[in-house]
Structures are given as structure tokens and as C-alpha cells.
Design a protein around this nucleic acid. Structure first.
Lengths: 189, 189, 189, 189
DNA sequence: AATGAATGAGATTTCATTCAT
DNA sequence: AATGAATGAAATCTCATTCAT
């Protein structure tokens, strides 16, 4: 059925763009089709339904994000604090460019609970948890429940981006968010 | 138009319940009407449109929340740290009982930009900012941008509640969230 | 939900008309709606789906037919031969006015196998079987398997109507069909 | 256009199978293509349209049937009664194996009125009419309108097969149908 | 000749909103 | 004020047909 993966990507790109600008029910599949320059039926060649498309967008967005965080960590030999600041920055950029309409992990309630999704979520949390634990091991962080903290760092960053003053530049928002997270993990001295 | 305020409240209660369990587009006005035990047309006596109802729910929910935080602060003579822990707890309870589907400040979901809404938002942020500034004045907090921090504390708490493990009890989640925020505001010693 | 039974009947009338002139997939619900002078959504107030509407038409058509045959039998004190000729005539008129596109019993395969439908089918067959058995009892018919015969008399009449020459008048077609059926049940003398 | 006649036959076989099990609009060309193990586009090399394919199936089915009846008559020197019983049996077998969804002569389902089709229909009717007339000539049948009778014998047999009890075996159904037809043509003695 | 991805007209269905009662 | 049947615009989705490969 699928053959032209480039087309699938184009559809996903377009849909991502539209879903990020409007709530789900205001995004029309005819708009997606037109904007992606494909026939309406073509959408259904690649995606079972509007919901399916929506979650595919979310999934890809999410995967990409995790990949780029991983790459950042792999390609730079940094200390835990710098690592955390770095991934927070990547997250913030993601939320800044991509939409806030898309809850990063999908609403927990609505988004599919397939193994794929569970894995993705676990991956994100694991990524943060590793950084935190490494920091603890190195004696620079302190956290009684790293797994819990890991779970909501992304939500925290989202909140920062979402509610930052309209005129705030990304840099200062990031700096503030990172600072906050880092102090939250700071050793009591 | 409006006359029977009890009925209006019943509609709001019902709608709050439903909107909190499902995304906007899955909540049908016929469901709301049935659950509220009123005719579908009656909804339109009290609310201009589905959007209007949605935002009315949000507004009331939000106002109630702010009120209860204010009351908590007024009725208890506490230090800044305890104040913060207290309002975090109230927030967490709110997110726990009420829905995660309703973005608290809905700033992106293009919620109305009337003066009413601006005021409400300002009130919430101001509430947090005051606590933080009071802490700074008292020499127990440290924050370079209290207004910025104030803006995303609610988002942080939401994230914590949203992504806490299903089996986590509210108490430990609150404790963790408060601890995190408080350390984020801690003086460097 | 339903209140206006007259409207439901109008929809059924219209649909019967259209389904009788064209095969299922050429009958558009927008045509039905327009012809019945109701909104497209109204159809769904009374019928769950296009299939549902189709079978409702069939069911009513069928019930009406059985009723008129029953009434004919009740209101006229006739001998078995005359009874048979009469109901054949009624059947033929039905097929003549109503459509041939609608298989009287619905395609056995496709049409719902609810109790309602089973009952209706049983009623028709019973009606014929009674006449035949009465004829046997009175010594004017002969049939080794009245129940089997009863099952296909309606199909036979349909076939006669369906394949009669275009210019044949209803009377002669009926006469021939009745004659054929009656001889088929005739005593060997 | 057509070249590979074996492939064409395979398509026809497959389509016959599918059309016989479901009504026209439930048979998808993609199903036909998949089941026939050809590409969807290939169907269009052999048939102009879905309708065209449908009628081609019908035509072939019908021709085969007439051929086998003719062969039966040619290869066996039988009296009119035996001839009739024989062709009824062939018809019944046809309806039993092939579908009831395909109206044999499809006269209403606006099947093409080409000379080919007129001829085919005429052939079937003629075949029956000849048998009946031969019976009349031989003094064993009696029928005032053999042409009319000829027209609906096939419909009668179809009805018998269609509505016979599910557990009835073909033999007894045939015997009953033949008996009915033969008595319908019986001399009044 | 053969394919099946792509198409888009048009099908069914939904649901916020209206309005006669 | 209250209703819910009626509406129809607009949404999702289907599928016969085309066409580039």
C-alpha cells in the first residue's frame, strides 16, 4: 500500500503544521489534503482515520525530539548539569517552533496505549532519569525520586514556554527554565 | 436571558465533568444536555455557543481555584515556604479531581482575550508572584525573575499530576512537587 | 426521538419509491431527503443508517402486503381455489406497482435475521400453507409438501410479473399465474 | 485490449463468486482484483467498468447454463416431461451452486438491451417454449400460453431454491419443483 | 500488458444550532 | 423559559477509475 514514504512525510509535515495551529476539530482533512497537495483519499492510503493521522504526527514529533536529545547527549561529553540544560533547551525549542496544541505525550487519557507509545514515553523518561541519576552519582544532583522528576520535566518546560510573556526571547526563557530545574535538583549545601 | 441560576450552575457542573474527561470535540452538546437533564435548546438560553460554554466552564473552574488559594492564604498566617507548599497542594488537588483535558489558562487554545480573562490570569500569576517576592523580601527565596516563575508554577504542578505514575498517591506527588519548586527557589547557601 | 410518525411514513414512502426504481447503491440519501422534503439529518433521526432505512421500507412493504392478503381472506368467504387466485392477484398487483428491485423477502442472505423478520416470513408462508391445506382438506387440492409450496408461491408470482411481456396487461398475467399455480395443486383426476 | 483469455476467465470466475455472495454494491473491485490475483488496473484492461464486469459475469453464467441445458436435450432422447424435469434440475443446480444475488435475467436491474442480451433471453425462453410445445403436440401437455409459461419457469425454480428450507436436499427440492411445473402443464383429464 | 498508488467526486453521517410549540 | 425535533452545512470517509511507471 504505502510506497512513497516521501509523500507520507509530506502529509505528516503538513498535518503537524495544521494541528499545531488549531485544535483538533478545527483541522479539516480537506485542508490537510490541499496543503499537502495530495488527494483526500491519499490521506486514507497512509492513515486509517483522522485520529490515526493525529497520533502519527504526535508520534513522529515526539520520536524526532527524543532522537535529537539523544544525539545531543551522545555527541557532547558534558557534565550532568550541562546535559540537563541542553535537553531543556532542545525541548524548549521544540515547543517554541512546534505547537503547544499538541500535548507532548498526548493526553494520557486519550492517546493510544500501544506498546509503541509506552516505549516512547518510557524512552523520554528514561533519558531524563539517566541524566539525573548520573548527576546524583557524580554528587552534583540530589533527588529522592529521579523517576518521578524525570516524568514531569517535559511538562515543566512546556509550561514555561506556554506561559512565558509574549515578548520574552527564547534564550532567556530557556535560561530561566534550566535554572529552575537545576536548582530543583541542586544539592543542599 | 439567564434567570435560573441554579440551572446554569448545573449545566456548568455537568459540562465541567464532561470536558474534563474528553477532548472538546468528543463532548457533544446533546450529551451535556442529557447529563444535565435539560433540553438541548436550554443550553442556548444560558450560553451563546459550545465555545462559550467551554470557556464559561474554564472560567468558573479557574476562579474557584484562585478563590480557594486566596482563602487559604488569608486564613492562615504562614511563611512563604508553607504558603507555596499550600497552594501547590490546592493546585494538585484541583488537577487531580478536575480534568487534565482543560488547559488551565488555555492561552493557546485561543481563549477569549476579554478583560475578564486577562484579569483572571493576572490574578493567578500575581498570587504566585506575591508569595515569591515575599519570600525574597524575607530572605528565604531567591529568584531573578519572580514574574516568570509565577507564570509556570501551575504548569509544573499540572505536569506533575499528569505524568505521575498511576499508583502514586496525591500526598507523595504533592510533596515531591512542592519540594521541587521550593528547591528551585532556594537560596544558594 | 421519534414523534412525528407522519414524517416517518413520508420518508418511507419516498424511499420505497426510489428504492423500487433503482438499485440500492444508486439511491442517494440526499435524493431521499430532497424528495421527502426533509433535511438529510432528519433521516438519521428515524433510521440508523441507509441499510436500516432500506430494510424498514422492505419490512413495511411486506407487512402491508400480508395485511391486505389477510383482509382479503377475512372479508370474503371463498373456496380455496378462489382464495389462491385472489392472493396471487394481490401479490401480482404489489409487484406491478411496487418494484421488482426489492426482493420480497429481501435476499435471504442479506436481510436481517431478527425475530421480527423471521415472523414476517413465517406469516407469509403460513398464509399460503393454510390455503393449500384447506384445499387439501376440502379435497380440491393435492400437495405432498404444502409448506414447501407455500414458500415459493410469492417467488413464482414475482417471476411471472418480472418476465411477462412488456405489453401484457395485468389481468391476463394474473390469470395465467393463478391458472398455473392452481393446476400445480390440481387433483390428479 | 484483451489478449490473455485465461486471465479474463479467472477474473470472471472470481467476480462470479463474489457477486454471488453479496449484493453489487458490497463487492469492491479491489476485492475482485485481490481474489483474482491481478492488479486493480488490470480489470480495466478486460472490462470497461464495474457494471460491465457485472454484466459480463451474468452473461457468461447465463450462456453456460443455456448451453448445458441444450446439451442435455441433445444428448438424451427424452419425452417432454423428462426433458422438463431435466432442465429444471439443471436450473436448480445452477441456482444452488451459483448465487441468488444475481437475478438471472436481470431485466429490471437495467441490464444492457443489446442484441446479444435479447438473443440470450430469447434463447432461454425459446428452449422452454419448445419443450412445452413439443409436449402439447405430443398430447401430454396443455398450455394456453406456452410463451408466457416459458418466461417464468426459471423464476419459479429460482424461487424454489431460494426459499427452500435450509436443510432441504437438492433432490427433494428438484422433485417438488418439477412436479409442480409438470402438474401446471398437465392435461386435464 | 500489468500494476497499484493516487485521485477526488460524491457518498454517508454528524452535530451545533435553530425554532415552532 | 423550556424543549427536542428538525435542520443542513460541513465533516469524515469510500471506492470506481485513472495513469505513471
Amino acid at each position: 500500500m504505502k510506497e512513497d514514504s516521501a509523500k507520507e512525510q509530506r502529509i505528516l509535515d503538513t498535518a503537524a503544521e495544521l494541528f499545531s495551529r488549531q485544535p483538533f476539530h478545527k483541522v479539516l482533512l480537506s485542508d490537510v489534503a490541499r496543503a499537502a497537495a495530495v488527494g483526500k483519499g491519499t490521506l486514507y492510503l497512509y492513515f486509517k482515520s483522522k485520529d490515526d493521522l493525529y497520533f502519527a504526527v504526535l508520534f513522529r514529533e515526539f520520536s524526532t525530539l527524543i532522537d535529537s536529545m539523544r544525539r545531543f547527549l551522545d555527541e557532547n561529553a558534558l557534565g550532568p548539569g550541562e546535559q540537563l540544560a541542553g535537553v531543556v533547551r532542545i525541548l524548549a525549542e521544540h515547543f517554541h517552533t512546534t505547537s503547544f496544541n499538541m500535548e507532548l505525550l498526548g493526553s494520557v487519557i486519550t492517546c493510544p496505549v500501544t506498546d509503541e507509545w509506552k516505549q516512547l514515553r518510557a524512552d523520554l523518561w528514561d533519558l531524563f532519569a539517566r541524566i539525573i541519576r548520573r548527576g546524583i552519582d557524580k554528587g552534583v544532583f540530589r533527588d529522592e525520586a529521579p523517576d518521578l522528576t524525570a516524568r514531569y520535566i517535559s511538562g515543566l518546560v512546556r509550561a514555561v514556554c506556554l506561559f512565558a510573556p509574549a515578548n520574552a526571547d527564547l534564550d532567556s526563557v530557556c535560561r530561566h527554565a534550566s535554572g529552575f530545574v537545576l536548582r530543583g535538583l541542586a544539592l543542599e549545601r
